[in-house]
Design a protein around this nucleic acid. Structure first.
Lengths: 238, 238
DNA sequence: TCAAAAGTGTTGAATCTACACCCATGA
DNA sequence: TCATGGGTGTAGATTCAACACTTTTGA
């Protein structure tokens, strides 16, 4: 493994973030308007270069704060997606990009910063063509999150520390794009020990009307047994 | 995104491969004995530097051939695991490594090459401490493959083009480390349309004895609906 | 008193598990 | 004819989807 550090055209390592949240029941993505070449004026996923002394995860949190003003990165769930390394991804130089899906409970307002002219929450189905290969990264993020809802408790990453089962169900419905039966959903979640635990006595009104719902906290378990399968898309396989 | 290509200490990008196969019913990993510093003489996962003109996937295939003589990389299934980017992973310089799990149907013999003094198939549970953070990468690979057996048809990547249901079941049992009920396994697999398709008329003897088994090919589907869940490890979550 | 949201009950269908059992082959 | 591995059948338990119904709140 002889390797002269400076013999080759160096690689740049970047991170790209598909930041997802729910706003009024619909899945939204955080996009930035690029203020630099290439793709100036185009919309893109937030991201940037990894510095020499930080990991990709650290860089992801830093870039998010810098570009969008999201400093409340405490409740942020980072999920490494995959790494995109095809030569030619970036017209400037050889860039290897580590992509993340980032899930956020509430959706604070965002604003441009550093390299971003603007930053905005965009409904997932309103996202137009993005810069670089970011369309693909976003699609991969959506697919991965949708799949992980089935067999992990990832959904709670979209919820505040205390949440109602209705809110949790909204996560599934927004990401999957399907309606779920409330009674059955409720039973499945409660039957999976460790998924959620009740906050005794607490309750909250949803939408100003109706019976106040009991509050729950995320449980101590990460894997769901049995999984909470999405309704068969009729022909997905079987 | 101003970036002077040569301003920073450059990143090196490497690939690491957890190559898995089944030998006589047991899960084996391909390890190489390092012929270079650091960790000379230690066992490690095969891997190496990504060249300027290739993707991580291409580099993975090339390194595998170079280090172990595995040139039959046609039937090889490559599955990107994740990227390890913590500063200090490699004592020499800043290295970002893209890890892959690679699944192989048959286990051809291997030999050292280029940077590897030796290469060998090692039973999974006999793997001792490895160089760098390769223990963790291998554990991550095992976990990921085990999970993907449940809801994808990944298991067929361990099988030759035509295989028996008994062989397919061995894959599950070897990776999960549990025995499965043969009749039920068979029914589940056949009930999942697109998982396997029969090769008409063909059959093969297993182990020289018993009734010849019908042969199947991998189907055209990648996602399993419903999933083939592993038996509850009694306390995994519920 | 009505609409809206939470929560409970129930029933028939589908699935799964754990076996018992039969089949084809080599030694 | 026996051991070995392939393949089928089945009964009981469990789970699940679908939908009716009750409860609690604000307007």
């Amino acid at each position: 493994m002889e390797y002269d550090k400076h013999a080759y055209e160096p690689f740049a390592v970047t991170v790209d973030l598909a930041v997802l949240t729910l706003r009024s029941g619909a899945l939204h993505v955080l996009l930035v308007e690029r203020g630099q070449e290439p793709y100036t004026g185009h919309w893109a996923l937030p991201g940037g270069f990894v510095q020499p002394d930080e990991s990709a995860e650290t860089a992801a949190r830093r870039e998010l704060a810098e570009e969008t003003g999201l400093s409340d990165v405490s409740g942020l769930h980072l999920e490494q997606l995959r790494t995109y390394s095809e030569p030619g991804r970036d017209p400037r130089m050889r860039v290897v990009s580590v992509a993340f899906a980032a899930l956020l409970p509430d959706a604070p307002d965002v604003h441009g910063g550093s390299d971003a002219a603007d930053a905005r929450w965009v409904p997932y189905d309103k996202v137009g063509p993005l810069a670089f290969d970011h369309d693909r990264i976003l699609a991969d993020a959506h697919e991965r999150v949708g799949a992980k809802l089935e067999y992990t408790c990832l959904a709670t990453a979209f919820c505040p520390p205390e949440f109602t089962l209705g809110e949790l169900q909204q996560v599934y419905e927004a990401v999957w794009g399907t309606a779920l039966d409330r009674p059955n959903f409720r039973r499945k979640v409660l039957a999976t020990e460790g998924f959620v635990e009740p906050v005794s006595g607490a309750s909250r009104l949803t939408g100003g009307r109706g019976k106040p719902a009991a509050l729950y906290r995320a449980g101590n378990v990460t894997t769901l047994h049995p999984p909470l399968l999405r309704p068969t898309p009729e022909g997905h396989s079987a």
